[in-house]
Design a protein around this nucleic acid. Sequence first.
RNA 1: GGCGCCUUGGCGGAGUGGUUACGCAGAGGUCUGCAAAACCUUUUACACCGGUUCAAUUCCGGUAGGCGCCUCCA
Length: 470
Amino acid sequence: MKIYNTLLASRKLEDVAPLDGRTVRIYTCGPTVYDHAHIGNLSSFIFADTLRRAVALSGHHVQHVMNYTDVDDKTIRRSRMEFPDDTPEEALKLLTDRYIGLFNNDLERIGNELTPITFVRATDAKTIWGMKDLITKLHEKGFAYIADDGVYFSIEAYKKSGKTYGQLLAVNAENTSEARIQNDEYDKESVHDFALWKKQKPGEPAWEFTLGGQDLTGRPGWHIECSVMSRQELGQPFDIHTGGIDLTFPHHENEIAQSTALEDDPVMARIFAHNEHILIDGKKMSKSLKNFYTLEDIISHGFDPLAFRLKILQSHYRSQVNFTWESLEAAQNLLNNLRAWADQKHQKAAYNKEASAPYADGFRAMLAAAGDDLDTPKALHSLTDLANKGEASGVEPEKFQALLNLIDRLFGLQLGNRPDITHAQKDLIAEREQARTAQEWQKSDDIRDKLKQQGVAVRDTANGPVWYRA
RNA sequence: GGCGCCUUGGCGGAGUGGUUACGCAGAGGUCUGCAAAACCUUUUACACCGGUUCAAUUCCGGUAGGCGCCUCCA
């Protein structure tokens, strides 16, 4: 299994071999839970989910951790608006609980597995303690300084210790944007310094914190969360850190700085893997352009959440996908065709001609593609190849079910758990066959119509009738 | 201002120095009682201009257009 490493020192494909020789440890930057996730967010988690599936199928044990950012400017602002009568702490909890629930529900609907993942909240007591502890140590060693509005990380001190700030993106004066310099309104010593801890402002939730004899009661900065949660759950260095391409800088860069300032080893994670953004009609999704969609939008347009998953898997995670409704429709049609193929597992009478030898090879090809920097488009090609051969080469129900299970483990398209039709429907199909044999065309067509109303279509083949869900 | 990417047939999306994926959609056909599905065929694509080469969509240079990151962001 190989995956592309975004670290500047690498920028190439690397083998995914567990650092500890046993378990591949993966950390995924999760959502900030202040609103519904949009489909761009979701695509990122489809990537992380598929990566874990591919690593596991390549034969490794996997430990996968994902966080919820449940305290930041947006969550606080929104919680105060929606729950003005509660304390800031309670309001924040109410709001983030709600959106964590909705987020998990979205993940399940797009076919992500939740059970293999350890979810951690930034506001978990353990996390809060860990953040205070790390900030305190950074401060003791001179990597953090106290300003009027909070505690900041000193990039200068980090550099002086001989480490590189700029492991993911070359950082220098030339490529610092105007906007960033203009927005540099905080009480920092240098533009790139970032907040480790923010002192409480009126109406904000806060946690007690004393540093250098000062009362700094307030809340953690964004980057420190991931440094602490990843280490608490996975240790350091761990194997793969994933996230959207936009998190490369500054978020992951800052994580690295925090996580390695006190260590001899400057490596936080061996591999950083980033997924590209999806575009809407060729443009980046943004609230200002009002071109973002949620899973609810997809469903209300009549599409299956798994069609969205398929759409995402149809392009490579490191290339931008252009999302259009037309392309989603194509994915939905393909999904329907794959489901019709999968439904043949219930119909051995029609398909029991030959052995399923090509199936083993077919799945091997999918796995090989997935192991090559998660080349899901290629893997899907192998899948459609197999599906197209299905009818010609015959289906042995038990082997077919086993194959579908493997395919599901890789793609999460849920092709293997599709139920059979009812006995009553099977009786109707048999009845129609009798009518056809007797050349009672009107009766046979009536039965076909009736079945169709129940969502079951029938086609007649040389081997007898075959149904599929229309 | 700095860095990087992209431009393929109706749509999406791979890939390759010469044999031209795949999916979706359209057309015709085989098959069928009719359908459907499947199968076959089909609409012969690689932004533009130069260059290298026996040969370029594929390599090099330039032009045009588009996109992303450098700031909260998946």
